[in-house]
Nucleic acid binder design. Structure first.
Lengths: 138, 138
DNA sequence: TCCTACATTGGACTTTGTCTAAGTCAAGAT
DNA sequence: ATCTTGACTTAGACAAAGTCCAATGTAGGA
């Protein structure tokens, strides 16, 4: 993701300190943060950054396809910077840890035409749930 | 679901007008309503019912396993009375409408052993996304 | 350097959901 | 049939997550 900022500038993005910091936070780790967590980490690097800007920037990254929005629990959405290869999520039912996984096969094809009710099916999200090794041992 | 109230009474539930009305709303249709929609429909039948009671009752139904809580969009949770048959969801990306669908094949088997990272995978949730016919036409 | 369209800010506002204290009532006990 | 009691309901305050807006600031081209 180190060339993310270059790609975005190529698409006409104005490169501001705030956007750079948000991109840096997303790039830094493989955990999926909530918007508030992104804001907190960004504020460590750039104290005056506002919540609105973080939300705006995340929204733009999502609509540009650079970042995925994941909502597994009906609470805060989480932002997943690993948008460039398709993957799904494996979530521990006890501790909530999320791992990226790669199922085999064409997942959309699993839905027969007569089960599509006229929808134009464009995407599929799969969440596997179970106990992670640490929680299973405890 | 017509014997739902009987089952619940067997489990020590006090049978109140409010709970009857909430169960009736859920039973009435195959759409998955948000808590607010359930409240609105319940209020048609019992005008004084409060939001807190609707939330309480839905929460109890969920923890008793009679109803499933579905959060597909990070906005309002929806409540799915069809808890007794395995099924997945087809969600309209624009309006949020949810339909129950039944994909073919064993969905858990789609995750290879080497992608399980030691988890005991117990369940899988699949959300297909696309435009519903109404939104596609608009 | 100057301009200006685009970006940022802070705070008010909305939506969704939770909590609490006080009042009400279903259903078993008498 | 009435009483009693603890579970249930209520209204409204509160909280968390997110959106919107008018005023202000600034990146990058001319």
């Amino acid at each position: 993701m180190s060339d993310l900022l270059e790609r975005l500038r190529g698409r006409g993005w104005r490169l501001t300190a705030q956007r750079r910091v948000v991109a840096e936070v997303l790039d830094g780790d493989h955990v999926h943060y909530t918007a508030d967590e992104v804001h907190a980490k960004a504020a460590n690097l750039l104290p005056e950054i506002s919540r609105a800007t973080v939300y705006n920037t995340l929204g733009e990254l999502v609509s540009l396809g650079e970042v995925l929005e994941v909502s597994t629990d009906g609470r805060a959405k989480r932002y997943d910077p690993n948008a460039h290869h398709a993957h799904q999520h494996l979530v521990c039912s006890r501790c909530g840890t999320i791992r990226d996984v790669h199922p085999s096969g064409d997942l959309i094809a699993g839905l027969p035409a007569e089960e599509r009710f006229g929808f134009q099916v464009a995407a599929v999200e799969v969440t596997y749930r179970g106990l992670c090794p640490a929680c299973a041992a405890a």
